[in-house]
Design a protein around this nucleic acid. Structure first.
Length: 717
RNA sequence: GGACAAGUAGCUCAGUUGGUUAGAGCGCCUCAUUUACACUGAGGAGGUCACAGGUUCGAGUCCUGUCUUGUCCACCA
């Protein structure tokens, strides 16, 4: 053995060995208890970043349970990531001087498909490099035909059950990307925007959005506002930049009498709140801004201007006409922007598909309250409840090509929507018309990934769903608790009548060395491959769980990675001492005879039964047993940092520094204990550091083919 | 406006149900000088546990309040 551990010589060979023997499949323990984790499918539009290496937690659990004899399944997959991917791809096109509008739908789809296939392949290689024991024979992709079929089936069921409806509602619209978003995809920025106090006949009201005034269909005050009682219900004459007009004054309790003058203009077509007021008072929805972000023909001479241009032009003209009373130039507000490009989101009225969330959310709250699903850390329950209690209906239509096209056809004969499980209807079932037009929109990517736990298991192989669903844990970043986890709970219960998983386990974010979030725009994204090349995959894995309480954010730390790499070297040299430097007479003892009993507890039992047991041996065996106990408990309670710390401490400072030193003058006698303790340490460490533990375990006297399929050590009583 | 987390050694962080002199890694200082391992070993310096009250025989840990930082949710025209 070399003096220094060289991970590049060791790590590359074992993954193939394990995979070749079929160890990643749950079938190696056909009679074991099912233990299932579905890999949160990474987006297939870019290589992995270092945060993805947090999947190691799932590998630890899977390897641990596999060693416990469970039928452990870790199911891999990847996500087409609809809009996200289209944005990434459009940037690629931009570099070549092209845009998505240069291609027809089919060509564009095919180009993105090829792009994604490439990335997918690279990503799979990276997951292997990190040692993740995923069952590749069950790998799924969100655009697999059988997955799409299930997504369609769910949509049809929801449509038939009245949970899906076509609604003309206000949606969050990005005029640059030309698509709508759900509420979660809108970011808010603090801005200072001029607040104009404008004259509406006898009233004065405050607004930042002058350009929407053409869409005003009422003026509203609070019903109890004594200042304006005499106007409520009246129609007032107003002067506007387009000439005289009439407008109705209504009373609605949504108006805050403290804001501005206590009077607001109501523009149902261009504000969520105004839309709701409009619904209550049957106001006309007059759209004056188009999907291109420009004012339309209803705005007279302002038509064709962008929102920004129009606002300036209107302000200028109103000042000239003395229609503005005053301007608060320092007004602070918050403006919704596209989370990808920063363009201001326009609330626009649009026909889209919506999911009624009230009942689904209620069920999703119930299962947590009853304890059928547990959330770790528990604090997140509150956040989870808060979101679900205030949830609004979910817009699932996206005006892009990359995704699963919605299986809905509009009949021009009877003006009805027809929804199928994917097949094209030959004619309208209501009126027999053949004038059917398919909705060009695709699903929000979270609508399909929300069905991932059951969609995957229903399409891998017969019996999988029955055996592995509900899955055991869903382990993921806490940043997608709403986007994904809550949706999976809602959709899973709805579609299968069962919870999708028993435990929700949330890990913290991996930040850059300065504690900032990693992002492409900041150019601080670290590749897990670079880290694995530099320190070894084993060290990278251990560094992610060591030293930071599980669930908390952590910064990428090179000193920590170095410390973990040093630890692998320590293990290597312990191995070298025990294997290479074993005295000849100890070799003749053939310790495996004493220690190779298949049951781990009898292995322990054998050693202390010796009447002349050395107190050092007794002591180390006792401490080893304690370590087994603590480590097992820590993993079971998702306290991975505790487990890692316990093992590091015991192996380095108890076993190496103290015990090994103490055996140097009675080496032959101690050899069986050295081998036994070290082999057990490697077994305990294996879920954390699979490569080096396999390498060293193979060099020690052992039973069985691989450390991966040996049984988890048991503590003595 | 609301919620959550954090504030412990120079730095990065542990410290589960309150219990003897508060721990680790890195850094720093002294020693060991090739030992299975220098990606090493032995030893050491360094902390009023954010602040102020309270409960208790006993508080880093529990309660109340304050300050600071980070994250999330809501969104006001």
């Amino acid at each position: 053995m070399d003096k220094t551990y060289d991970q590049t010589k060791v790590e590359s060979k074992w993954y193939k060995f394990w995979e070749g023997l079929g160890f990643f499949k749950p079938e190696i323990h056909p009679k074991g208890r099912p233990y299932t984790i579905i890999l949160p499918p990474p987006n297939a539009n870019a290589p992995l970043h270092f945060g993805h290496a947090m999947y190691v937690v799932e590998d630890i659990l899977i390897r641990f349970h596999r060693m416990l004899g469970d039928s452990a399944l870790w199911l891999p997959g990847s996500d087409h990531a609809g809009f996200e991917t289209q944005v990434v791809f459009e940037k690629e096109l931009e570099k070549k001087g092209k845009s998505r509008f240069d291609f027809d739908r089919e060509t564009l789809y095919q180009m993105i498909w090829d792009f994604v296939q490439n990335n997918k392949g690279e990503m799979e290689g990276q997951l292997r490099r990190l040692g993740f024991s995923l069952d590749w024979s069950r790998e799924k992709f969100t655009l697999d035909p059988d997955i799409i079929k299930i997504v369609y089936k769910t949509f049809k069921k929801m449509f038939d059950d009245g949970l899906v409806y076509r609604g003309n509602r206000i949606v969050n619209f990005c005029t640059k990307h030309g698509t709508s978003f759900s509420d979660l995809e809108v970011l808010y920025e603090d801005r200072i925007s001029p607040l104009y106090y404008i004259k509406y006949g006898p009233l004065t009201l405050a607004t930042t959005r002058l350009e929407t005034k053409f869409g005003d269909t009422a003026v509203a005050v609070h019903p109890d506002d004594s200042r304006y009682q005499k106007y409520i219900g009246k129609i007032i004459d107003i002067e506007t930049v387009l000439g005289p007009a009439k407008i109705k004054v209504i009373a609605d309790s949504a108006v805050d009498p403290e804001f501005g003058t206590g009077v607001i203009k109501v523009t149902p077509a261009h504000s969520m709140l105004d839309f709701e007021i409009g619904q209550r008072h049957n106001l006309e929805i007059r759209q004056v801004i188009g999907y291109d972000g420009r004012l339309n023909e209803k705005t007279g001479k302002f038509s064709g201007m962008t929102v920004k241009e129009a606002r300036a032009a209107i302000a200028k003209e109103m000042l000239e006409k003395n229609l503005i009373e005053k301007i608060d130039e320092n007004y602070k507000n918050r403006v919704g922007v596209c989370y990808k490009c920063g363009t201001e989101i326009e609330p626009l009225p649009s026909e889209q598909w919506f999911i009624k969330t009230a009942e689904l959310a209620k069920a999703a709250i119930e299962v947590i309250k009853k304890g059928e699903i547990k959330i770790y850390p528990k604090n997140f329950e509150k956040t989870y409840f808060n979101w679900l209690k205030n949830i609004k209906d979910w817009n699932i239509s996206r005006q892009i090509v990359w995704g699963i096209q919605i299986p809905a056809w509009f009949c021009n004969g009877c003006d009805q929507w027809i929804v199928t499980e994917g097949e094209t209807p030959p004619k309208c079932p209501n009126c027999n018309s053949k004038l059917l037009e398919r909705d060009p929109d695709v699903f929000d990517t979270w609508f399909s990934s929300g069905q991932w736990p059951f969609a995957t298991l229903q399409t891998t192989r017969p019996g999988d769903f029955e055996k592995f669903y509900p899955t055991t844990i869903m382990e993921t970043g806490r940043d997608i608790l709403f986007f994904w986890v809550a949706r999976m709970v809602m959709m899973g219960i709805y579609a299968t009548g069962k919870i999708p998983f028993e435990d929700i386990v949330l890990h913290g974010m991996v930040l850059d060395p300065l504690g900032k979030k990693m992002s492409k725009s900041k150019n601080n994204v670290v590749s897990p491959m670079d880290i694995a090349d530099q320190y070894g995959a084993d060290a990278a894995r251990l560094a992610l769980v060591y030293g930071t309480a599980f669930g908390h954010d952590q910064s990428l730390s090179h000193p920590k990675l170095q410390a973990m790499r040093n630890f692998t070297n320590k293990l290597w040299n312990i191995g070298r001492f025990i294997v290479d430097f074993a005295p000849d007479d100890a070799k003749h003892l053939n310790p495996s005879v004493i220690l190779a009993c298949p049951e781990s507890d009898s292995r322990v039992a054998n050693a202390p039964q010796n009447d002349n047991i050395n107190p050092d041996d007794e002591d180390i065996l006792e401490k080893l047993s304690k370590t087994i106990e603590v480590t097992s408990k820590a993993i079971n309670s998702y306290r991975f940092h505790d487990a890692a710390d316990t093992l590091y401490e015991f192996i380095w400072h108890e076993f190496a520094d103290k015990y090994i030193e103490s055996t140097k003058d009675r080496r032959a006698e101690a050899q069986p204990v050295l081998e036994y303790v070290f082999r057990t340490c490697l077994e305990l460490l294996h879920p954390f550091m699979p490569f080096i533990t396999e390498e060293l375990w193979q060099r020690l006297p052992h039973q069985g083919k691989s450390i991966m399929v040996t049984s988890w050590p048991k503590a003595t009583e």
